[in-house]
Design a protein around this nucleic acid. Structure first.
Length: 318
DNA sequence: AAGACGAAAGTGGTTGA
DNA sequence: TCAACAACTTTCGTCTT
C-alpha cells in the first residue's frame, strides 16, 4: 500500500510500506488521527508520528476561507493593537438585527470606543506619524516595524510623558535605523519629521538608555552606498571608498570620529583617485558635514595611508 | 572666480572630580 | 554640579587652479 503525504510546497512523496515487517501480513491500518500505521494481524505499530502535511480542507471561495482558516493576519507592531484588534461591527450588520439586538449593538460599540485607552489612542496617532516619516525616508519595512516596537515599549514605560510624541517617534526611528545598519543621519530624520536635530538626539539617547537597547556605533561603511549614489559616483569608486575605509579602520583612524565625516572623506579621496572628482562642498552637503571636517579627515587619510604618493602617481600617468 | 586650505573662535555633549 | 576636553562647526582670509 501507499501512504501518501504532501510536503509543503506541493511536492508529493510516497513511502512504500507493503507489509508488516514482523508477521508479513499485508493487512495494515492507517490511522490518520493518531498518525500511526498498525498491522491488523499482530498489532505491531509500524509507523508512529506519521505526519500529514496536507491541508485537510480546500477553499473554493471566500466564504470557505472565512469558515475554515484558523489563522489571521500576521502580528505587527506597526498597528496600534498589533493587528490583533477586533471591531464591533460595521454599519451594514445593523440591518440583520432588530429591536433589542440593535440596542445591544450600539452599547457594545460605545463601550469599545471607551475601552480604547489613552495609550492606544496615542499609539494610533504615533504610528501614523511613524509610517509617514518612514515612507518619506524610504525605509524598509523591517526598520519601520522595529521602530514601532521601540515606540510601543517607550509608551508602555511612560517615557513619552513630557516629550512630544513626534520627537519620540523620530528617536525610535533613528534607533531602529542604526540597529538595522541602514543609518540615516540626524539631519535627514530632522528634515523628514520636522523635529529639531538636537531634540531627536536627546530623545534617542534617553529612550535607548531607558529601554536598555544596545546600539553599536554606526559603521561608516554603511553610509557609503547611499552617499555614493547621491553623488552619482561609479560602483568602482564606491568599492574603492570602502577599501580606503577599511584601511583607515585598521590604522585606528576611525575611532572617536564622526562616522559620516570619515565616510565622506574616503568617498572624496576615492572619487579623486578614480578621476571622478567632486568638490568638497558637494560631498559635504550630501554627507551632512562641513568641508572643514572632510578636509581634516582627508588630511589624516593621506598622511596615515600614504595615499599621497598614489595620487601623485596617478596624476603623472595622465 | 571657484575651489581648496588653514587658523581661530564657538557649540553641544561627555567625563571625571 | 562644574570645569576640562575632544570633536565638529562657523567664519573668514589666503592660496591655487
Amino acid at each position: 500500500m501507499f501512504i501518501k503525504f504532501t510536503v509543503r510546497g506541493g511536492y508529493k512523496m510516497s513511502q512504500n510500506i507493503k507489509k508488516c515487517p514482523e508477521c508479513g501480513s499485508i493487512n495494515l491500518i492507517v490511522n490518520k488521527d493518531k498518525g500511526e500505521v498498525v498491522c491488523k494481524s499482530c498489532g505491531l505499530v509500524i509507523e508512529e508520528r506519521l505526519i500529514d502535511f496536507s491541508q485537510e480542507w480546500r477553499e473554493f471561495d471566500s466564504d470557505d476561507a472565512d469558515k475554515r482558516r484558523r489563522t489571521g493576519a500576521p502580528m505587527t507592531y506597526t498597528k496600534f493593537d498589533r493587528g490583533l484588534g477586533t471591531d464591533v461591527g460595521q454599519k451594514q450588520d445593523i440591518y440583520k438585527l432588530a429591536g433589542k439586538g440593535k440596542n445591544k449593538f450600539f452599547r457594545l460599540r460605545k463601550w469599545q470606543y471607551r475601552i480604547s485607552t489613552a495609550i492606544e489612542r496615542n499609539l494610533k496617532l504615533a504610528l501614523a506619524e511613524l509610517k509617514r516619516v518612514a515612507s518619506y525616508l524610504k525605509l524598509p519595512k523591517s526598520v519601520e516595524e522595529e521602530a514601532a516596537r521601540i515606540y510601543t515599549l517607550a509608551v508602555q514605560k511612560g517615557l513619552v510623558r513630557g516629550r512630544s510624541m513626534e520627537s519620540v517617534v523620530a528617536g525610535a526611528l533613528y534607533a531602529a535605523c542604526r540597529r538595522h545598519e541602514v543609518p540615516r543621519t540626524l539631519d535627514e530624520l530632522s528634515e523628514a519629521s520636522g523635529i529639531d536635530k538636537k531634540e531627536i538626539g536627546r530623545t534617542y539617547r534617553f529612550v535607548t538608555r531607558e529601554l536598555g537597547i544596545r546600539i553599536l556605533p554606526s559603521n561608516p561603511i554603511d553610509y557609503i552606498p547611499r552617499f555614493a549614489s547621491a553623488l552619482r559616483l561609479s560602483a568602482d569608486t564606491q568599492s574603492k571608498a570602502v577599501d580606503i575605509l577599511e584601511m583607515a579602520q585598521n590604522s585606528e583612524l576611525t575611532s572617536g570620529r564622526g562616522p559620516t565625516g570619515i565616510a565622506a572623506a574616503s568617498l572624496y579621496v576615492a572619487a579623486l583617485m578614480n578621476n571622478e572628482k567632486r568638490t568638497q562642498r558637494e560631498v559635504a552637503d550630501i554627507a551632512g558635514v562641513t568641508e572643514v571636517t572632510i578636509r581634516n579627515r582627508y588630511k589624516e587619510l593621506l598622511k596615515k595611508l600614504n595615499l599621497k604618493d598614489k595620487i601623485k602617481k596617478l596624476k603623472k600617468e595622465e
